[in-house]
Design a protein around this nucleic acid. Structure first.
Lengths: 138, 138
DNA sequence: TTCCATGCAAAGGGTTTGCACTCTC
DNA sequence: GAGAGTGCAAACCCTTTGCATGGAA
């Protein structure tokens, strides 16, 4: 799996209406080059490999910004930390609580039937499905 | 909605193989008298109404114990805090991110179709469905 | 020059841990 | 008297915030 070029990352940022900076480019390259599930700290570590002068605050700021611009999805799966998912198309997840491993399940493979009709004042944000499994013997 | 008696609470604890203590009885009464969604702090506040000498640590210890004994389910819905659900039968949730309001959706109402076949080494723990909505205008 | 993005350090908030005390069997 | 349960306070960890610096338009 290749990392995208700086040019490609720049285009993604412009496309989302986000001013381009070095750190943002690197975060795009780390997280958006391919479908990924990463914690903020994992992103920080990877970005620092190429841009060591990157602060934790910037990573958190940027991830929040990317979430608002729908470049990433924030998954609430593990109480310990948030996970950022660079696959923003509708899909679901399989989560191994023992290893932390998170696997995508496509919306073709799995379907949610019977989502209730919402009262007028409620807007549907998204439907999360998490299939929780364990790999260690109980 | 009535609070269950101490006797009823005691029977629940014994049934789950949990040694009976005053604090545990009160936590059962607060959380298990009816289907509830409560944070640890909400449980603590309610328990202290009747047993003021109750520590935060005891509430956390007890909630963890109850979870292991399947008296409650721990919901990971809000990154801010865990929510304990006293309804342990299979069901799903509707979550209003603006108000924090959490509503049960029965397993008759909503169904998940196409849960993938799991490799032999994985055990299914549970299937979480969270329908995320917002009530404030965007 | 005026913003905005960044880095750094500290604060914040939910949860866990260490330890001493108490109660029970 | 051994073990478990509890209370208290401190520690922990992820995340956010405040503030000063620095760069871009």
């Amino acid at each position: 799996m290749e990392t995208m070029t700086v040019l490609q990352a720049t285009e993604i940022l412009r496309g989302a209406g986000i001013p381009v900076t070095l750190q943002r480019v690197e975060i795009v390259r780390v997280l958006l080059s391919s479908p990924q599930h990463m914690s903020a700290d994992q992103v920080l570590a990877r970005v620092r490999e190429s841009v060591p002068e990157t602060s934790r605050a910037t990573v958190y700021n940027t991830l929040k910004l990317f979430r608002e611009k729908n470049l990433v999805r924030e998954l609430i799966v593990d109480p310990e930390r948030a996970v950022y998912d660079s696959n923003t198309s509708p899909h679901y997840h399989l989560y191994d609580a023992d290893t932390g491993q998170l696997t995508d399940i496509s919306a073709e493979e799995l379907q949610v039937v019977g989502v209730p009709h919402l009262p007028a004042h409620l807007r549907l944000e998204e439907v999360d499905v998490i299939i929780r499994v364990r790999s260690r013997p109980s």
